[in-house]
């Protein structure tokens, strides 16, 4: 249902977030601001403002310069080395944690195609019936308290 014009900022940000994840979880890629604006019947500038507030609250990560979404975690808006096939979607996680987060969020089976960060050897990881299939390690380079200081590198 389209959002009401009388929404306050908190309600608008909630509706924008809901719309972002509704599209992303169905299609695998976060939407552009214009599409969210069309769906909610509000000006694109207001959606961009909501994107900024959600990013400031660490609920999104935006692309530099244009204000569009880079990450609606666990999903990436751009190709990454963490490709995920899940629920008939071909999409990308932002990192290996987020790649595993996609089947966790969609509650479905998945295949993840990635590669060793050191040597580049390809690897396939699967989730079937809630169980992980595959071997390897995850490395967290930055201490947890500093993750949001450089979330793109992280």
């Amino acid at each position: 249902m389209p959002a009401k014009q009388s929404m306050n900022i908190v309600e608008q940000d909630q509706e924008v977030r809901r719309q972002i994840y509704d599209v992303t979880m169905r299609e695998g890629t976060p939407p552009l601001a214009a599409r969210v604006a069309d769906a909610l019947l509000i000006p694109a500038g207001e959606v961009v403002d909501s994107f900024r507030r959600l990013a400031d609250a660490h609920m999104l990560v935006l692309q530099a310069g244009n204000g569009e979404i880079l990450m609606a975690n666990p999903f990436s808006a751009v190709p990454t080395p963490f490709r995920v096939n899940a629920n008939g979607l071909s999409c990308y996680g932002n990192c290996i944690w987020d790649a595993l987060g996609i089947p966790a969020m969609l509650q479905c089976d998945a295949e993840i195609d990635t590669s060793c960060g050191d040597c580049g050897t390809s690897a396939r990881i699967a989730v079937r019936g809630g169980r992980l299939e595959g071997e390897g390690l995850m490395h967290f380079a930055i201490p947890a308290r500093l993750w949001w200081k450089d979330i793109v590198f992280n």
């Binding site: 595993l100 990881i125 595959g134 995850m138 930055i142």
Partner: peptide, 18 residues
């Protein structure tokens, strides 16, 4: 940094994004 097995990463993902 910190290193965890994939299986533990899956448990983290399920908790974090569930």
């Amino acid at each position: 940094g910190a290193v965890i097995p994939l299986e533990q990463g899956w448990q983290l993902a399920r908790t974090w994004y569930g």
